[in-house]
Amino acid sequence: MNPAALDKLQDWSKAGHRTVQADTLMMLAAEHPEVVALSADLTPTARLVEFKDTYPDRFFDVGIAEQNLIDFSAGLALEGLRPFAVGLAAMVPMRPAEQVRAALGYMNANVTVIGIEAGVRFGPLGNTHYAMDDIAVVRAIPNFTVIAPSDPLSTHKALYACIEHEGPVYLRLTGGPGYPVMYSEDFDFQIGKSIEYRPGSDVAFISSGSLLADAVGAADILEDKGISTRVVDMHTIKPLDTEMLDKVFAENKLVVTVEEHSPMGGLGGAVAEYKAGVVGAPKQVFASLGDKFQKLGDHKFLMKENGLTAPDLATLAETNL
């Protein structure tokens, strides 16, 4: 990480993940000459204007052309550069899914694809702008790492982990303005190594993305009722931290996976796939977006609609325990 990040946490929390990733890319570019950034006509949206102005020779806007965004990034990576391709999560891994597979996954290219405004963060813009299935698509591609960080500092640290990582990464960002600060001091962030955010023996919330704050809120509600609740920040969805899952399956009575994604193929799906082979593992329930196109509404409305607020999560856990 860059130590300056700690001084920016409150600003980053107010601004949301777009600013966190853009500021972090600036820091990475200053430290690593091989870092380049790309966008497909989303430079202001992705908060990359400063990057473009500061590093005009290391920033590429390929136009509204996501397929080429991915292929062009792959070509840069094969020649030793470190591209970060930023786009809307609804589009950047989905429109060019075949390029993501053939050019990034198959060639194990060192490209980090950053999907901003994942899940239903785009609220009133409607379903074409929601990313409810992106994890499922990318997770199925060999060689890919999928990370959904939970807060400003973990987003920052995830990007620093990407630069050291060999192979393609999909960094899935949720957490808009008001991005909760879950980590206010430096901590150990390793790709594939989840974080036990708090211990507990009855319920275990296994969370990805910015819903960690809501899982912790739900845990508070349950603890007040005498239900011991563990919360795990499963920031890396692939590779999955099976060591932590083994511990959870052995020690907790109910697993609740929490994510802003379809119940199919995301964190919940990944946990269920692993759990299928664990004899005696506890029941799992899925807190997720439904397998449906959503109603129109702002993010808060949609979280409530899908049962993803802290009280909803607490009720879901309590009724299934």
Partner: peptide
């Protein structure tokens, strides 16, 4: 063999990225 190809169009687009990388470097 520099690039995996077969899904048409991609090799060419990757080649463009490789050419840009040469310019940058």
């Amino acid at each position: 063999i520099e690039v995996s190809s077969g899904t048409l169009g991609n090799g060419f687009a990757v080649a463009c990225g490789m050419a840009k990388a040469a310019k940058i470097k």
